[in-house]
Design a protein around this nucleic acid. Structure first.
Lengths: 150, 150
DNA sequence: TATCTTAATGAAAGTCAATCTCAATCAGCT
DNA sequence: AGCTGATTGAGATTGACTTTCATTAAGATA
């Protein structure tokens, strides 16, 4: 999936201006870093990865703060919440999808299902509820782990 | 929704025996307490509530340990994970359902939708994934809060 | 029923993700 | 270039949850 990073950053700059926030190097760097990380991540994992790079140093505090900001902006999402851990995903350029999570090996399988999305919208209408986002996690055992357990 | 508490406790006793665990007063008490609490709860909330009762004292540790046990047994479920908080529900005697969560007032609306369940099963088959449980949270603004904001 | 073995319990300490504090720094307006 | 207020980083703090370990209780056995 190709993401136009420059375009994304321009939109983020506009977003920051709208909120009277400043366009800082750390914030723009974090977008590059996240885009190049290219997989599901936990914040502490990202903190370690970023601090291991000599070219771009961003503190733990700023990473946490920027993650929150990028979430509001819509570039990343909390996709799995399990065992006091939060797994995020950089979602720019990806269609909405949900996740199968193997409780044995931790494998994460993404799936797209329009029908489920539509049914959710219907439910929301029924309850006069305005959805902002949602998270569907299906926990279970993946095929590999089932084979191993036989 | 009527729950046959005695029957539930008998099943729980069998479950404990199967696992070579002991049938203790605290464990049985917790089932009564949860059944009488009758709403979504957080563990700390439960700890406070239980410790405010003079008739049944159960320690924080035991509550946490028993909550985990009852989850494995299937009597309670983690239904909402948000902001480092976990909201549980006593699910005995209730059909499977999912939740709309108002991010403004915290209201939780339960809904049942067979079609969504069936589609999830199809997705799992497609990926040869054996589902154990799932959680669908739809975050948004409820009708009351939208009215207030106008 | 008394004894014995082992699991369960409670209190307190520990863990860990996440947030907060505050002095120093930087963005960006004038 | 100077000014103002937002941002940053380092470390302290919070809060949910877990672990430790000495004491207690379950429940099997005699």
């Amino acid at each position: 999936m190709k993401v136009n990073l420059n375009q994304l950053k321009e939109e983020f700059k506009k977003y920051l201006k709208r909120k009277n926030m400043k366009i800082t190097q750390s914030r723009l760097d974090l977008i590059d870093l996240l885009a190049s990380y290219g997989k599901h991540f936990e914040v502490e994992e990202l903190v370690n990865w970023v601090s291991s790079r000599t070219d771009r140093r961003v503190s733990r505090s700023t990473i946490y703060r920027t993650i929150k900001l990028l979430q509001e902006f819509g570039a990343i999402k909390e996709v799995i919440k399990q065992n006091n851990r939060t797994i995020y995903e950089f979602v720019v350029g990806k269609p909405h999808h949900d996740h199968l999570v193997c409780v044995e090996c931790g494998r994460i399988i993404e799936f797209v299902n329009e029908d489920i999305e539509n049914l959710q919208d219907e439910v929301c209408k029924e309850y006069d509820f305005e959805p902002m986002n949602h998270r569907l996690e299906i926990f279970g055992i993946c095929s590999d782990c089932r084979r191993k357990n036989i």
